[in-house]
Design a binder for these strands. Structure first.
Lengths: 221, 221
DNA sequence: TAGAGTGGTGAGTGGCACTATCCACTATAG
DNA sequence: CTATAGTGGATAGTGCCACTCACCACTCTA
């Protein structure tokens, strides 16, 4: 198919497709002439995947590019693939770097700062989680703890432990769903979808449950 | 204190503080002269909160403004407050709208499209969740289901049910931690922090657990 | 053989979160 | 008292990002 059909079937405008081609997100079609190329169903699938990651999930174009490259490179070894995908993914959301500010210790709130990184180590040890040496996800947990403490909320790894148990069960559910997938590329894509696209939905479920239980507890009329 | 001290103690540059003042994120200080104003500890706390929401969590400035306004307006009724906060929050991440594309039905994959919204209704009914009529969080779940189906992954509300149970327990944990807070404003802020700042950490915990269990299941060395 | 469509490329757009500069003025050190 | 640094307020500019437009030589279709 040519670019206009690709555009029509994907719902992505032609200039945007060209932009993705230029940026290497979408592989070039098979050239049939100087100004003519042929795209196939794989291109369409890839394009839909790109739109899901960028448009629905809000990944940046460059993060999407890295993730897709990881998926393409490591279709054989599922664990290695997952590691690459998880590593290539921005862990919180898109890309704005948190901009290290050298803020002073909060004067009032008695919470000792401590080393949040050690807290995370204690948490993973308690959970029996064995991971790669310095996973970006651990960094996120560390930063969250630091932030909560800087705001005077003495929070430590013990406060996170019950959530960690829930996360553990969620991860088991995730992996259960990878079992019966098809060829390696599809399996890789499925892993990506379940990890990434499900994230906003999981948070949304928590919000719904919060609203329900909040009504139960605080309703006054 | 004056703006330079506010800047030094918060780690936020003076131009940025001025920008927040102008945009109404940070209330103005008490004016002592034509070009002199006095800021207090509340301004400092608020500024740190703003930086956490924008810099750590990645909220947009306008979303942050809405959320803070909701916190300020409804300190009395915790349930109403939570509702406002949840409503004011962008549910997935910052603000880029997903751009409704009129993509064609995926031809191959046998997954019937169905009405994803009905799936979400079935899910909340099954969980016994009672929420406001049209919570944005439900919309997110609906969109996620639609996206997964459009990518050919026949996913329905039953697939989400086990996650919903985990979300339910997470929400109970969240609300447990709101019990012993101080004055209404602080309680409101705490609700905000626990709902919003914890989100990336929860997802990061899931990633850590995924990595661990992935190693357990797929290791080949 | 006209007209629409194609790929490729460079330049432009709009939005966002700052950031720089300027101003009249105030506080403070000497 | 002056000199200097700092202040609040405002306007304009910056850098980045995800597109989007315009143009080109060319090719396919009627």
């Amino acid at each position: 198919m040519r670019i206009s059909e690709l555009s029509r079937r994907s719902g992505v405008s032609i200039p945007t497709i060209k932009y993705y081609l230029r940026d290497g997100l979408l592989p070039a079609g098979r050239a049939t002439a100087a100004n003519q190329a042929d795209y196939n169903e794989d291109h369409l699938r890839r394009l839909r995947l790109i739109r899901s990651l960028i448009g629905v999930r809000g990944l940046s174009v460059s993060a999407t590019k890295d993730v897709l490259a990881a998926v393409d490179e490591q279709q054989g070894d599922m664990h290695l693939l997952l590691g690459l995908v998880l590593g290539a993914l921005p862990v919180e959301r898109s890309g704005r770097p948190p901009r290290r500010d050298g803020a002073e210790e909060p004067a009032g709130a008695g919470a000792a700062a401590g080393d949040a990184a050690e807290d995370v180590a204690a948490l993973t040890a308690e959970m029996g989680w064995k991971t790669s040496p310095n996973p970006p996800a651990a960094q996120v947990v560390t930063e969250t703890l630091e932030t909560l403490r800087a705001l005077g909320m003495d929070y430590d790894w013990r406060s996170l432990l019950p959530y960690a148990h829930l996360a553990d069960r969620a991860a088991r559910l995730d992996l259960d769903q990878l079992e019966g997938a098809g060829d390696p590329l599809q399996q890789a894509e499925r892993a990506l979808l379940l990890t990434v696209l499900l994230e906003p939905a999981l948070l949304a479920l928590r919000r719904l449950a919060q609203e329900h239980h909040s009504a139960q507890r605080f309703s006054n009329g």
